[in-house]
């Protein structure tokens, strides 16, 4: 479980997250909505542990460990994984090598890559000249190898063409144990109860909800979580009246 209590974060002198409270229980996936600049990516980066996001108050606990000031690599090893929106290119580091780095043990990189239709990119430098959709598939591939327990997605559908959006949606669903494939040994209800993976997904378009279920929607407005509800309901509300409505709740 991820537990965030009264989290306050500054970048430089600017306060960007104010008193965030959030709990993601084992097996839960939350969708994070909010207008541009509301602090969604900042919240993700703070959970991952980017040092420029200075925690000035509150705490974060993951799997019973206080991670508030834990180094970024230790958090990754503890089971926090992320799919970035714009990851950097690293010249000379092949995608294949990156996947291997993510996995703690030997993995069949080729087989994983085939699942996200990414085999032909394995020998390319990571993120070098990748299109929006290629970046998303590369990030997913790395997450698959990492086998993290808390998966953070920063706009996984942005820049993805129609052909790949269902592939990406379905893969995220599978990673978060939310796919409904028939299983002979266990009922789907039982599988639901046994879910362990946690997810937090930033979305602008809400398209991702066409491919997967989610337990809760969170709305971040001006550095505060102002509303938590059924994700579909929040999405429909935003689609109908826009984020202006949030102003009322924020006051």
């Amino acid at each position: 479980m991820l537990q965030i209590e009264d989290l306050q974060v500054k970048v430089g002198d600017k306060e960007i997250l104010k008193h965030i409270d959030l709990e993601i229980h084992q097996g839960e996936t939350h969708i994070l909505f909010g207008p541009n600049g509301s602090g969604k990516t900042s919240l993700l980066m703070t959970i991952i542990g980017y040092p420029q996001y200075k925690v000035t108050g509150g705490k974060m606990v993951f799997k019973g460990e206080d991670i508030t000031h834990m180094p970024i690599d230790e958090r990754a090893q503890l089971g926090i994984g992320v799919s970035y929106q714009r990851p950097p290119t690293i010249n000379g580091v092949k995608t294949k090598q990156m996947v291997q780095i993510c996995a703690k043990e030997e993995v069949d990189v080729e087989a994983l890559a085939a699942k996200v239709n990414f085999s032909e990119f394995l020998e390319r430098d990571i993120n070098a000249g990748f299109s929006g959709g290629e970046i998303k598939r590369s990030e997913l591939l790395q997450l698959m190898a990492q086998d993290a327990d808390l998966l953070l997605f920063d706009e996984p559908e942005s820049g993805v063409d129609l052909e790949n959006i269902s592939l990406i949606g379905n893969m995220i669903s599978e990673l978060l144990q939310r796919d409904f494939k028939l299983n002979r040994e266990k009922s789907l209800k039982k599988l639901h109860e046994e879910r362990t993976k946690m997810g937090l997904i930033i979305t602008h378009t809400g398209f991702i909800l066409d491919y997967m279920t989610a337990d809760r929607g969170q709305l971040l407005y001006d550095g505060e979580l102002t509303c938590a509800s059924n994700p579909r309901e929040i999405f429909t509300c935003i689609s109908e009246v826009g984020y202006e409505e949030c102003v009322r709740c924020a006051v």
Binding site: I72, D73, A76, P87, I90, V93
Partner: peptide, 28 residues
């Protein structure tokens, strides 16, 4: 680039290993 080191660290590499990986990449 710090950004590259942090990217690798968020995949579980220590800072030293991340730096070494980037340097090896640079030389390859």
């Amino acid at each position: 680039a710090q950004e590259e080191i942090l990217y690798l660290m968020s995949r579980g590499l220590s800072e030293d290993d991340a730096t070494a990986t980037i340097v090896r990449g640079f030389l390859s």
